[in-house]
Design a protein around this nucleic acid. Structure first.
Ligand SMILES: [Mn+2]
Ligand SMILES: [Mn+2]
Ligand SMILES: [Zn+2]
Ligand SMILES: [Zn+2]
Lengths: 142, 142
DNA sequence: ATCTACATTATAATAATTCTAAACTATTGA
DNA sequence: TCAATAGTTTAGAATTATTATAATGTAGAT
C-alpha cells in the first residue's frame, strides 16, 4: 500500500472490504513519508490520539493480521516479549537500539550481502535477516 | 557451565546458592553432549519426565532468568509468540525451520563474516546475528 | 429495499509471565 | 552445634498480551 491515495481501492483489490475502521488504519499506517515500526499498543494510541478514532482492540488485532496476511505488514521478532510490526514488507535488516527499544531499518548498502554456505536438505531458504543490537557507548569506560 | 561436573561449585562461583532445584536444572541443561534450545515448557517437561523432579513454575522462570543474568543462558528471539532459550551463549547464527519450529545453530563456517558499513552515532554494536528461515521445499511446485 | 456474507464490538476466555507473601533452607559465625 | 539471617521456593493470585464468542452492524450484490 502506498501513500496518499485511495485506500478504498487498495483494500478492494485484495478482497478486503473497505470498512471505515480499515480505511482509518490504512491512513495512519500508510499516509506517511517513510515506513515505520510499531506495536499494537502504538497503533491503538496513534488511532485514538492522532486520528481521534476509537477502534475496538479486537478489530485492531484482526486488521493487523489481515494486512499481514495480504503482505501489507510484516511482523518482526526482536524481543520475545513484544510484537513489532513493520510497514516495510521487503526483506531487510535492522538495528535495534537496546536503550530506547527502537528499531531502525538498514539500507541495502549498510550490510554486505550475506553468504550462506550451508543448506538444510529438503528445505529452501525463505529469508535471511540480520539483527544488529546496539547500545549506548559511554557505559563503563572506567 | 560445562558438562559432567560439580554444579554446586559452579553455582557458588557466581554467587547463586546451590539449592537442589538449581542443581537439578543444571543437570538437565548442561549434562549433555551438545548445547540445545528450549522453551520454558520444554524445560518443565524435561524436569518432570526425565529427571522426575517437580519444580514450581515460578522457580523455573526465576532460575532461567538468574542463569541468563549470569551468562549461562541466552534468550533467542525468533517468534514473538514464544521465548526460546539457548545453552550456547556465544554469539552465533541460527536456522529456523518454519515447519517444525526447530532452531538449528550455524557453525562458524556456515555463514561468512557479516560486514556492517553503517554505524549509529554514540552507539556501539553489541551483537550481530543472522536468522535464516527455512521451510519445506515441496510446497507449490505446480 | 432486501439479503447475505463478512466485519465490528464488548466482553469473556486463554496463555504466558510476574507478583505476593508465607514457608523453607543454605550459609554464617557465635 | 545451632540459632540468626538473607536468600529461595512455592502455591496461588495478578497482570498482560492475545484470541474466541456471540450479538449487532454494514458493504456489496441483486
Ligand atoms: Mn502475530
Ligand atoms: Mn525473558
Ligand atoms: Zn523494518
Ligand atoms: Zn543457538
Amino acid at each position: 500500500m502506498s501513500k496518499n491515495c485511495n485506500f478504498i481501492e487498495k483494500l478492494r483489490e485484495v478482497g478486503l472490504r473497505p470498512t471505515k475502521q480499515r480505511v482509518k488504519m490504512c491512513e495512519v499506517l500508510y499516509n506517511r513519508e517513510k515506513t515505520f515500526h510499531f506495536t499494537i499498543n502504538d497503533l491503538v494510541k496513534l488511532l485514538s490520539e492522532r486520528m481521534n478514532q476509537k477502534i475496538s482492540l479486537a478489530t485492531v488485532y484482526n486488521t493487523v493480521h489481515a494486512f499481514e496476511k495480504k503482505g501489507y505488514l510484516k511482523e518482526i521478532s526482536i524481543d520475545s516479549h513484544k510484537s513489532y510490526f513493520d510497514t516495510n514488507t521487503s526483506a531487510h535488516h535492522h538495528f535495534f537500539d537496546e536503550d530506547t527499544h527502537e528499531l531502525i531499518d538498514c539500507d541495502e548498502s549498510d550490510i554486505d550481502k550475506i553468504n550462506i554456505r550451508k543448506n538444510i536438505s529438503g528445505k529452501k531458504i525463505n529469508s535471511v535477516e540480520v539483527l544488529v543490537r546496539v547500545a549506548s557507548d559511554n557505559q563503563t569506560q572506567k
